[in-house]
Measured scan of single mutants.
Amino acid sequence: SRHTFEINGERWTVEGVSEELKEILRAAERASNDEAERLLRLALKLI
């Protein structure tokens, strides 16, 4: 499935992501810059 999210003013669209990964991306959208970066690094390990 496709998911579009915005982090630090940048929009991203990813396809074929699991519900778990979507949850991480949604958390990154709400997080501070440092926390968002940490969550994105974690998410990339899952891809």
Rank of each mutant, 00 (worst) to 15 (best):
F5K: 01
S32T: 14
K22Y: 15
R38S: 07
I47V: 06
W12H: 04
E19Y: 07
A28V: 06
T4C: 15
V17R: 02
A36K: 12
A36R: 13
N8H: 05
E23N: 12
W12K: 00
S1I: 14
S18Q: 04
E19W: 08
K22D: 06
I47H: 05
E20W: 11
R11L: 15
D34F: 10
A28S: 03
E35R: 04
K45N: 10
L42A: 04
V17A: 15
K45S: 14
G16D: 12
V17F: 07
S32Y: 06
E35F: 06
R2D: 08
L44N: 02
S18C: 15
L46N: 03
E23R: 10
N8R: 03
L21K: 00
R11Q: 13
L44T: 03
E23I: 10
A27I: 07
E10P: 00
N33W: 15
R41G: 05
E23M: 13
N33K: 15
H3Q: 11
T13S: 07
T13P: 02
A31E: 05
E19T: 08
I47S: 04
L39W: 07
R30K: 13
I47G: 03
I24G: 00
L46V: 07
I47A: 07
E10Y: 09
A36V: 06
D34V: 12
L25W: 03
I24C: 03
I7V: 07
I24L: 13
A28P: 00
E35C: 07
D34A: 12
T4N: 06
L21P: 01
I24S: 01
L21R: 00
S1G: 14
E37R: 12
E29F: 05
A27P: 00
G16M: 08
E37I: 13
L44Y: 05
G16P: 05
K45E: 11
E37F: 12
G9D: 03
T13V: 14
E29P: 01
N8Y: 05
H3N: 08
E6K: 04
A31K: 03
T4M: 07
R26A: 12
E6L: 15
G9I: 02
V17Q: 04
A27Q: 13
L46C: 09
R11A: 09
E35S: 04
R2V: 14
W12E: 00
R38W: 10
R41E: 07
E37T: 12
I47Y: 07
S32H: 10
E35L: 08
E10W: 09
G9C: 09
V14R: 01
L46E: 04
K45A: 12
S18P: 07
L21V: 15
L46D: 02
T13W: 13
E20F: 11
E6Y: 15
E35I: 08
E10M: 14
H3G: 06
I7A: 01
L39P: 00
R11N: 08
L40S: 01
A36H: 03
V14C: 14
I24N: 00
L21G: 02
S32V: 09
K22P: 00
A36D: 01
N8W: 06
E19G: 07
K22T: 12
A27V: 06
A31I: 03
R11G: 04
G9F: 03
L42F: 10
E37M: 13
I47Q: 03
S18H: 05
A27L: 12
R2T: 14
F5S: 01
L42C: 09
A31Y: 03
N8T: 03
E37N: 12
E23A: 14
A27F: 06
D34P: 13
N8V: 03
R38V: 11
K45R: 13
L39Y: 05
L25S: 00
L39M: 05
V17T: 06
E19D: 12
L46T: 05
V17Y: 06
L46A: 06
R11E: 10
A28T: 02
L25E: 00
E15Q: 10
E6N: 07
S1K: 11
L42Q: 06
R41W: 10
L46S: 04
E23T: 12
S18A: 06
E29L: 07
S1T: 15
L21E: 02
I47L: 14
E10L: 12
K45I: 11
L44C: 11
T4K: 03
E37P: 02
F5C: 06
E6G: 00
E15K: 05
L21F: 06
I7N: 01
W12G: 00
D34C: 11
E23C: 13
I24P: 00
L40A: 02
R30F: 11
L25C: 03
N8A: 07
L25I: 05
D34T: 13
H3F: 15
S18N: 09
T13G: 02
R2W: 13
A31F: 03
W12L: 06
A31C: 05
L39G: 00
E10G: 04
V14Q: 02
D34S: 11
F5G: 01
A31H: 03
S18K: 03
A31G: 05
R38G: 04
N8M: 12
T4W: 12
H3V: 14
S1P: 12
F5A: 01
G16L: 09
